[in-house]
Design a protein around this nucleic acid. Structure first.
Lengths: 218, 218
DNA sequence: GCATGATTCAAACGTTCGTTTGAATCATGC
DNA sequence: GCATGATTCAAACGAACGTTTGAATCATGC
């Protein structure tokens, strides 16, 4: 979580766990299998809880479209529960997960999608039902942005915000994060569609390029 | 960009660049200094362009609050320009940057904030001027979410979306990404404030925890 | 109490890493 | 054309990595 996969050695892990170095290869086979097992144990139940949450919402709705906020909650709230449950991995696992999605290592790029496939399909249907006027492509992109904001937040990437002369309070309190994250994401998903491709950026953008070039020349 | 800092060896880099391995330590001193130089060269001009863009907007506004969409554009459009300019690093640098923000390595967690300090202060002022009803803490969080969605998108994290039975078209076309990203972020920043802390999540959340526990027992 | 299979342990393996070294090569000013 | 400083190069260094090994230890059923 705090060092990334490649930079975390089995010697660090086994020392922290107070076990012998060879135990990892004996019980798991390899370092790669070890972290795969972590996801197997933690991510499966988390996504199952998300689907169960969505099932409950849809059962209550009797086919009517759900409020976007509720659908977003179905994704975010189970993560909150995990972060509160030390036996379920706690907040540490969420941080690991947030980082893992950006992890370039092949082991995770080939493993994670399998866990998310059903979640994405189900929630995409729910969103497209709740937002019938949003074209499929736009919805896919908005879900993409949503996952970005979520995983970034879960990864605890406070590197930038720390220095904005005002710390983020309640960064440890998952509920206060969700109270702010859900309205943000729901508003983004419900944003009005802009059919005109922002023509006005053309001129300003050219000036920007010049500013970049000038800086480089200096 | 595609392997992460720790997993990218100087031997790979020097082989790709068709130079001798020792050249890195001769010209840069160390691997860490090498990547620091990359940020020095690329990130400085990019953030300068963002500030210049904001300067231009504010000069035209004569003290009046700016539309949130325009402020977001000031952050996003210069990145588009960089992605189009192969000499400025191109899209590859943006992907590197998006990954770097999530990179746990200490070299970057201590280097990047310095480049972003002024950007964050200036844009926070602009946003709080445009959104006077949003408390400072909420605004800080919303900017945090915004950076998350942005860096995730810039990092090209398509691992999850690929399998949602509908590919993201135009993923290479930066302008079409921006056309969708700006409305999403602006809507999120302008989202109505929820003063009631979503009490209704209590019961549902408890059920969710049970679902997780049951899955674990199975 | 002893045989047996599972687990733990210290030690070593081969590989790869970032870095250093010292000689070879290049460029440049006189 | 030669001295000098900068750069390139092949080779090696020590350290750290994931993994393997074989003996020691533990647990368990008879």
């Amino acid at each position: 979580m705090e060092r990334g996969y490649a930079a975390t050695s089995l010697r660090m892990i086994t020392a922290k766990a107070r076990v012998n170095l060879a135990a990892v290869n004996y019980h798991f086979g390899s370092k790669e299998s070890l972290i795969r097992e972590v996801f197997e144990r933690r991510l499966g139940p988390l996504n199952a809880a998300r689907l169960a949450y969505l099932d409950r919402l849809e059962a209550h709705a009797h086919g009517r479209p759900l409020p976007v906020e509720r659908i977003v909650e179905a994704i975010v709230v189970p993560a909150l529960q995990v972060s509160r449950d030390p036996l379920g991995g706690g907040a540490v696992f969420l941080r690991l997960l947030g980082r893992a999605i950006s992890e370039p290592a092949s082991y995770v790029r080939e493993t994670l999608p399998a866990y998310y496939r059903e979640v994405i399909v189900r929630f995409k249907h729910a969103f497209s039902h709740a937002l019938p006027h949003v074209p499929e492509q736009d919805l896919a992109w908005r879900m993409h942005f949503m996952f970005g904001a979520m995983s970034y937040t879960m990864a605890g990437n406070d590197a930038l915000q720390l220095i904005g002369n005002c710390r983020l309070d309640g960064a440890d309190d998952a509920e206060s994060i969700i109270r702010r994250l859900v309205p943000f994401l729901a508003a983004g998903l419900k944003a009005p569609l802009t059919d005109s491709p922002a023509r006005r950026t053309g001129a300003a953008a050219r000036k920007t390029v010049n500013a970049v070039s000038n800086r480089k020349a200096a």
